[in-house]
Design a protein around this nucleic acid. Structure first.
Lengths: 138, 138
DNA sequence: ACGATTATATCGTTTGTAACGATACAAAAC
DNA sequence: GTTTTGTATCGTTACAAACGATATAATCGT
């Protein structure tokens, strides 16, 4: 049923709207997406970033350069193929990524404290199931 | 426990990473945040947007102008106070907002079909509880 | 071993976004 | 009727986004 899915999205966006971090740093949409890609994909390089963002390789290369200048990423080379770059999040990069994609830990804790133990377990299991099935099926 | 909250965020970001829409339109971070604010807050105007984005009122006014030029928002005036603007999402704006903050309905449906009826119910209830408690407690 | 391919980097350019201060104007408040 | 409030516009500066063209260095194919 489609309305059930719309309802789930209603819940989803409400949760994020109320629980997201208060954004501080000036960071572009593309820069966040690059950090996400590096976080979630193993051994990602310039070409893969370009393909996933659907921009040309030189554009991707310059985005990555800027993100590296901000010390959010570091660049290493693949020992198997010295042409290839392997990107890696710095601690600062992880922190910035967290503040731009995760739920605010303090706010989340506050909400969880409003829940019964049963409800807490429910939330934890639901998100676990959804994330696991998502990874295997996409 | 803090590690439980980190785990929840792991689930949360994994779900969004795999289930988000494939972004098409060029849209700035600030523009999306304005659409979110208009969607989730009643009767919001320029001053409130400026305060929430932490920019000056003229900057907010220009952001809003650009978003209106793209036909994502329309502007009306508060009948009680004709100085005040009230912003309102257009159908296009709702669509753009969906594609930039919601989960992709097709992908989500595909994942839900992998779940048993019990698990589906679990997910639905968990998100419902979390969104409801969040709204009352923030 | 050498030309072709691949992965990345840099340059020059264009267009657009982000932000602010200064200024303006109209509605509301006092 | 002056002051405050909410919004809009202008001028400006700085930077981001994207591309084509070009360059370099590593690997592949034969």
């Amino acid at each position: 049923m489609n309305s059930k899915i719309e309802l789930l999205n209603q819940y989803w966006t409400d949760i994020y709207f109320h629980l997201h971090y208060h954004h501080k740093e000036k960071i572009s949409h593309q820069a966040i997406r690059i950090l996400q890609l590096v976080d979630k994909q193993e051994h990602i390089g310039v070409t893969e970033v370009a393909a996933l963002l659907q921009v040309s390789h030189n554009t991707a290369s310059e985005h990555i350069k800027r993100v590296i200048e901000k010390s959010y990423l570091i660049k290493t080379r693949d020992p198997q193929d010295e042409r290839k770059v392997i990107l890696c999040l710095t601690e600062i990069g992880k922190e910035v990524l967290r503040r731009n994609t995760s739920l605010d830990e303090e706010k989340l804790e506050k909400v969880l404290n409003e829940l019964s133990d049963n409800e807490k377990l429910l939330v934890e299991q639901a998100l676990k199931i959804l994330s696991e099935r998502t990874k295997t099926c996409m």
